[in-house]
Simulated scan of single mutants.
Amino acid sequence: MSNLDVKTVASFGDEWSRFDQSGMSDAEAEKVFDEYFLVFPWGVLSPDAVGFDMGCGSGRWARWVAPRVGLLHCIDPSDAIQVAAANLADLGNVVFHRGAVDASGLATGSQDFGYSLGVLHHVPDTASAIRSCVDLLKPRAPLLLYLYYAFDSRPWWFRALWRVSDWGRRLIHQLPPWLKPWVTDVIAAGVYWPLARISRLLERFGLSVGSVPLSYYRHHSFYTMRTDARDRFGTPLEQRFTRVQIGAMMAAAGLVDVRFSDAAPFWCAVGFRDPAS
């Protein structure tokens, strides 16, 4: 049986059909892309590099990666693969695969690079999923990951707030598909937007806002807040990991020279396939 949760796959198919990222400006999309790919080693890739986007969703990352490489494989087990195909129809070097992380259809040891952002914490066995991604890489090829952090860099009260919000997620994800986005839009408007704008105001006065919940969104659009609220509260399966745990899973999967980004979003990390693995 594939390493996926059927209800979570269906939830993401619904999410990306509603939030296909057409409501995000190119300037914001590029800014978000740069934040997630901050530690990615573009310099090691040749212009004809072949790689994969594991859990491509709407194709929002592939839009910026594909022009920099020779061929990009976009892989997703949900209906989102159709959204990605439509969004990236103008790119001739993207191939689409409907498949799971452990059943992608790609040959082992065939890829020059790979990335999986915001995906592998939504599968039953994250450690195994990382290993499945590494298996696709050539020796010394890089893999970029983004996994939800366990607030290990935050104070106790921040983690307590998350626990309260997670109780909400456990209820909201069970709502009917037509109702779920309405509820998460209310959360975006009533929680994300005010805290983000307060953070932006405080920043203008020269104050540090790193400890303010949702301050990451202070320079992002309401569309992004709606998307992420739906992602955060509408998903059935969510796991979180500390930086130490992520590093250990990456090492166990056969990645070396692991490097973490010290900037939000947390945690983004890159590693290279150990030639000996």
Rank of each mutant, 00 (worst) to 15 (best):
T126K: 00
W167C: 08
Q82D: 15
F12Q: 01
D152M: 11
A276S: 14
M24L: 15
A66M: 10
I130Q: 02
T227K: 01
Q239T: 11
R68E: 13
P155H: 07
M24T: 10
G190E: 09
H219W: 08
A86T: 14
P47R: 13
P47D: 09
L72W: 07
D34I: 01
F158C: 08
E30Y: 10
V94N: 05
A188F: 05
S221E: 11
A85Q: 15
W61M: 14
P194I: 05
L72M: 08
S11C: 13
S22T: 14
R243S: 03
L255S: 05
A264G: 01
R230W: 10
L72V: 09
W64P: 09
S261D: 15
W16K: 01
A263Y: 11
M249L: 10
G206Y: 10
F241R: 00
S22R: 15
G13R: 04
S110F: 05
R68I: 09
I130T: 00
L136A: 01
K31S: 12
A160C: 13
V95R: 14
D135K: 09
R169M: 08
L214C: 06
V270I: 06
P155E: 11
F40Y: 14
D20V: 04
A29R: 12
G210N: 13
P77D: 06
A100V: 04
A188G: 07
R273L: 05
I75S: 01
D90R: 15
R63Y: 12
L137P: 03
P177F: 04
A103N: 13
F52E: 02
C74Y: 04
F158G: 11
A269D: 08
L88E: 07
F33E: 08
A27Y: 05
A188D: 05
V244D: 13
A103L: 04
V191F: 12
W64I: 07
N93P: 10
V270S: 02
D152V: 11
L120C: 01
D135F: 00
P213V: 10
Q82H: 15
S116W: 02
S261G: 12
R240K: 13
D257W: 05
E35F: 10
P142D: 03
F260N: 07
F96H: 08
S199G: 15
G109E: 08
P77A: 09
L145F: 02
M249W: 03
L71K: 13
L136W: 00
F96E: 02
T224Q: 14
V9I: 13
L202S: 08
Y149D: 14
V258C: 14
K31L: 11
F151H: 12
I172C: 02
A10Q: 15
S153N: 15
V83G: 00
R131Y: 00
L214Y: 12
